[in-house]
Design a protein around this nucleic acid. Structure first.
Lengths: 152, 152
DNA sequence: TTTCGTTGTAACTATTGATTTTACAACAAA
DNA sequence: TTTGTTGTAAAATCAATAGTTACAACGAAA
């Protein structure tokens, strides 16, 4: 099972905010058109990112901006903000193992530590990558593929 | 979004096979009762594990056994066998970013490398853990909590 | 103070995938 | 040929994501 697309959509949102902030007002319609999803999906996502203090959204007049510099925002921050993982656990344990079976009774506690190690390995890697790096990569690709986009 | 419970159920299956193989015939009903799910769920899961050459299942007479030693089976082997991840990708990309937007056009290729690094970190950690270790941990817990289970 | 574009949110639908359940043919050994 | 299993199909249920419409609340600017 794959993780939801909210995470990659959120990264896309950050990239648009940073890259277009001097040219356009970053509304949910603007973002929705770049990402190609319904504006309401974006507004809900922006709500989660705002809740996590990663962005600021103007009511009324409209527009989203980063709440801190792109160097200070990691992929883990974004992941934690939008991926609703049950109690922070990536792995889903089957609910009711038979407590009368020695294995059923002990599997959970025996496995928990190892699953935590695996999840931590993933999260530590996410923590190392900032959206500033991602945005930089995107800008490089744009200059490479579309030198005409001189404003970026 | 969490991964499916098939993975932890599969680990539970391996633990039962190894721990009870000298006492009981390991049928899908036996496993289903320890795990507390429907036997058909187990039979489908056993099918995936068999397909990946991790276990052997006797038709007719019944019973499952490991296809190789527990030291040779890693959590990654099990994960790959049962977690149907699209093209091996943990992360789900939103389908149709706007190709007329410089960000929409380049986000995918710019992000792919980083997502691969994250996923690899997780998979490398999984590769380091064998089910022999897990089974050992479970046996320790059993002796700790139920010294009466002398047969284990 | 009215208008305008926008956000926040509710309500509903659709879709996807996991999970459960019943049923039964195929199978192998006793 | 009986018995206990596995393999598998089909259908039902459930949960989460994803998409859509609608509209009140909001803030700035006319």
């Amino acid at each position: 099972m794959q993780l939801s697309s909210r995470f990659t959509i959120a990264v896309h949102v950050f990239a648009c905010i940073e890259i277009f902030k001097n040219q356009y007002k970053i509304t949910s319609d603007f973002l929705a058109s770049s990402i190609n999803v319904n504006p309401v999906i974006i507004r809900k996502l922006l709500g989660q990112l705002k809740e996590a203090d990663l962005i600021v959204v103007q009511r009324g007049s409209g527009g989203a901006n980063l709440a801190k510099s792109a160097e200070q925002i990691t992929l883990l921050d974004i992941y934690n903000a939008v991926e609703c993982v049950d109690h922070g656990n990536l792995f889903h344990f089957h609910e009711n193992p038979n407590q009368n079976c020695p294995v059923g009774k002990n599997i959970h506690s025996a496995l928990d530590g190892q699953l935590f190690r695996i999840q931590s390995a993933m999260e530590n890697e996410m923590k190392r990558i900032t959206i500033a790096e991602i945005i930089n990569d995107i800008k490089l690709k744009i200059r490479e593929n579309d030198p005409s986009e001189d404003s970026i």
